[in-house]
Design a protein around this nucleic acid. Structure first.
Lengths: 213, 213, 213, 213
DNA sequence: AATGAATGAGGGTTCATTCAT
DNA sequence: CATGAATGAACCCTCATTCAT
């Protein structure tokens, strides 16, 4: 991590952010050094505190904007799901999600590296449990939907299993997103994983009705 | 992390290990402090170096034994797969893996927390790419098997997709293992994920034969 | 070595250097303590690293300037010797060296203590073999000159003896320089030792021609 | 410096000494580590303190015996010089010294490495000024002899110059002794240096009488 | 006679942060 | 706005030494 590799034809704040980005991505929040971030930006550490109150605030200045855009999109998707009548919601959610994958991917790919950072290098910040919280949110939505499903004759997989599947799905999606593959591949595979989990789950449900798993 | 919370009715080495375990699990390798590990065990930092040559050695004293047992088991499983005739290997591998899940789970559950530590908090140690290396290994085995599959009329999914699926599967398994659920649930869900991925992949193959995905 | 004995009416860098000088001179490189150097200068250890990257760098900040001036002078002297025709070089070298002794002494006396430090307390630094390297350099020059000497009828002392004499001469010179005597005395005695060795060697050569030593 | 390289078929004390010797020679007094000395001898550090009260005592257990034998020999030589009538002493001393060189060399070569250690690696011990003290002693003897010299018509070089010459001579001798050359070479060169200094000094005196230096 | 355990002090170094200028 | 100086705490680690056993 050499000195002064960040372009100098930018406002100070942006130079600091560019340098911080580089260091946080390479080392994670904890291992990155304010001193090196500053010197790499061409400033002294003190300068940094004119713009950001602390190392953590600096991190959030990088992570918050893309993260909140993504969270907003997820909220939108969730809200759209909520417009479905409750008894059709569980099986309609997927279609809505699939249809939004390209837009969601666009959003994520606007700054995929930051998503990676939040997922893998945010220990010590408010995002350190980001993935777990995301899973929690989705579980909540799905479970509500599952309670209102109309076909009472098919018994759903139990809630814990659902949670685990959801965790697996989300972990897998983020693993994929963060893996460095190109956007088209990621979009394709997000759909792929969706179908795999869907098909798998449906086969589970059928089997549950026929016999015991 | 207060001082002196580790029981004093144990040999020193064990007290240090217990304390180190606590701190490493809570903070990861890098963020944990030798000073605090020592003082929490009721000793001065110097005492620790009578038993372990370095912070890293201390980490390995915790991580190596369970990890090497697990790696040994994975080797055994792989070797058993290799006893299958090459042209039947791809579709026979799963059965072998399923049959070994309980034993593998037993092994993992002997010290699941350490597996978690290795997966999530081992930056700075030789294990920092553990998961990626595990995925790499498995990809290798599977791809070899895929090349020798006999049914030439069904076109396999392409290698990149296979890799992504494998990554997703393994990431999911470890996510599950590390999630804190009880052993029976984990064993059940390891099978579940296996079936989901298997079913999903088969449905993929069928679709590929019918039309284009 | 008490705290805070270095004058406070100097820039920080100079205070650190003054303190470091004191400690290095008194204890040598290895035994001197960064903590004590800093506190003696009236600072915390961290302050020191704002000016010098490491203990070694701090040492070099003291040792390099005088040392490189001296080495430069020695290079100049050597170059001047090289302007002599090869066959006259061996016996002409001395005169050149004598003529340069005052300037060389001036240079050395600009910071004789540092020369002492380098000669006696530089273990662990790049200067730890300074004297030996200096001897090696001179041996090289002299041996070359000896090969081209014109008077083939006088047999030179063998190379090993020459090396030993050279070592003795240089060791003696530095011993003298470092001994704390005033400049005039040192200059006088540098000449004196030169003549002693010269006379001694000449008498040797003569004896060698007359009979065996 | 590996563990346990010292032969085990010796009494403990000797094994410790052998190991200490190795470490002190390689690193000097200060940089050598009791812990490593002990472990290299096949013991724990504590064991060492059953035989030697401190690191320094251990050093002396190695250094004192050869050193005191050498000092004894030097005393003997000095005493023999004292048997000369005072007015003949100055010019008779050399002959006595030359005649004793072989025995002195034998003594030194019994443990030349220790002499090297004392000269070059004894900082922090009572021997750290060994050479300077030796010089001081000899100066004393010579100066006394110089005061009683009978030929009042030849003015000796002044006392300071004498001291410096003596220092140079002794420093040179020890430099030679410690340089690692074989005993025959050392003995030959000890004589050589003696003659060089003698011849040189005589020529000085003559010149002083003829004209000014 | 030797160990094993442990200490307390200290080693060089890096850190995020503060603040007067 | 940015610096430069400095801090105090913390980092991992090594040391010579002690002492009960």
């Amino acid at each position: 991590m050499e000195n002064q590799t960040v372009p100098t034809d930018m406002p100070t704040r942006d130079r600091i952010l560019a340098s911080a980005r580089k260091h946080f991505l390479a080392l994670g929040f904890q291992a990155a050094s304010i001193r090196k971030i500053a010197s790499d930006a061409g400033f002294t550490p003190g300068a940094l505190y004119g713009y950001f109150g602390s190392k953590e605030e600096l991190f959030y200045a990088l992570a918050d904007p893309p993260l909140s855009r993504i969270m907003q999109k997820l909220n939108d998707i969730e809200n759209e799901m909520m417009t479905l009548p409750p008894e059709k919601r569980l099986f309609g959610m997927n279609a809505i999600f699939y249809s939004q994958i390209p837009e969601l991917a666009d959003l994520i790919f606007e700054d995929r590296a930051i998503v990676n950072l939040v997922v893998n290098g945010s220990k010590g910040t408010k995002y350190e449990n980001f993935l777990a919280e995301l899973v929690g949110r989705n579980i909540h939505v799905i479970c509500e939907a599952a309670e209102n499903v109309e076909e009472k004759n098919i018994r759903m997989v139990d809630e814990e299993t659902l949670e685990i599947l959801m965790e697996g799905y989300i972990a897998t999606l983020f693993h994929l997103i963060v893996s460095g593959r190109d956007k088209q591949t990621v979009i394709r595979c997000m759909g792929l994983f969706g179908k795999i989990y869907e098909t798998g789950i449906l086969s589970l449900i059928k089997k549950e009705n026929e016999c015991d798993l």
